[in-house]
Computed example of a mutant assay.
Amino acid sequence: MTTLARPPSTSPRLRTLPGVYEPQHDTRLLAGALQREDIARGAEVLDLGTGSGALALEAARLGARVTAVDISWRAVLSARFNAMLRRQKIAVRHGDLASAVPGRSFDLVVSNPPYVPSPCAWPPKGASRSWDAGWDGRALLDRVCDAAPAVLRPTGVLLVVHSALCGVEATLDRLTTAGLRASVTERATIPFGPVLLSRLDWLRERGMPAAEILEELVIVRAVPA
Rank of each mutant, 00 (worst) to 15 (best):
residue 125 K to E: 14
residue 11 S to M: 02
residue 188 A to S: 13
residue 134 G to N: 06
residue 184 V to W: 01
residue 39 I to F: 01
residue 60 A to T: 08
residue 56 A to M: 01
residue 31 A to P: 04
residue 37 E to M: 13
residue 114 P to L: 03
residue 106 F to R: 12
residue 184 V to L: 02
residue 142 D to R: 08
residue 86 R to K: 05
residue 104 R to L: 14
residue 127 A to S: 09
residue 1 M to D: 06
residue 26 D to L: 05
residue 99 S to F: 03
residue 133 A to D: 09
residue 153 R to F: 01
residue 181 R to H: 09
residue 212 E to T: 14
residue 217 L to K: 07
residue 153 R to T: 10
residue 191 P to R: 14
residue 174 R to I: 04
residue 70 D to G: 03
residue 114 P to A: 01
residue 195 V to M: 03
residue 208 M to C: 07
residue 39 I to Q: 11
residue 153 R to W: 04
residue 47 D to R: 08
residue 35 Q to R: 15
residue 95 G to F: 03
residue 76 V to I: 08
residue 156 G to P: 10
residue 209 P to T: 07
residue 76 V to S: 09
residue 108 L to D: 05
residue 53 G to H: 07
residue 12 P to D: 01
residue 161 V to L: 03
residue 63 G to D: 07
residue 183 S to H: 12
residue 106 F to Q: 05
residue 219 I to S: 11
residue 224 P to I: 00
residue 170 A to F: 08
residue 130 S to T: 14
residue 141 L to V: 15
residue 101 V to Y: 09
residue 135 W to L: 13
residue 201 D to F: 01
residue 32 G to V: 00
residue 24 Q to M: 04
residue 136 D to F: 02
residue 200 L to D: 01
residue 221 R to L: 02
residue 161 V to E: 12
residue 68 A to Y: 12
residue 218 V to M: 07
residue 10 T to Q: 14
residue 31 A to S: 12
residue 10 T to R: 15
residue 205 E to T: 12
residue 20 V to H: 05
residue 44 E to R: 15
residue 32 G to H: 08
residue 222 A to R: 13
residue 65 R to W: 06
residue 139 A to L: 00
residue 55 L to C: 02
residue 138 R to K: 10
residue 145 C to G: 06
residue 183 S to I: 03
residue 218 V to K: 11
residue 138 R to S: 10
residue 18 P to Y: 08
residue 48 L to E: 09
residue 20 V to C: 11
residue 69 V to W: 05
residue 193 G to K: 04
residue 13 R to P: 00
residue 97 L to M: 14
residue 147 A to D: 15
residue 170 A to E: 12
residue 225 A to C: 08
residue 157 V to P: 04
residue 106 F to D: 04
residue 220 V to E: 02
residue 145 C to Q: 09
residue 152 L to F: 01
residue 54 A to W: 05
residue 9 S to V: 15
residue 223 V to H: 07
residue 109 V to L: 15
residue 37 E to P: 09
residue 9 S to Y: 00
residue 89 K to L: 06
residue 18 P to H: 01
residue 169 E to S: 08
residue 51 G to Y: 01
residue 206 R to L: 14
residue 191 P to W: 03
residue 65 R to P: 02
residue 87 R to Y: 00
residue 174 R to M: 05
residue 33 A to L: 11
residue 193 G to C: 07
residue 55 L to T: 05
residue 104 R to C: 09
residue 15 R to W: 15
residue 195 V to F: 10
residue 100 A to G: 07
residue 78 S to N: 11
residue 72 S to C: 04
residue 195 V to S: 12
residue 159 L to N: 10
residue 87 R to L: 03
residue 19 G to Y: 13
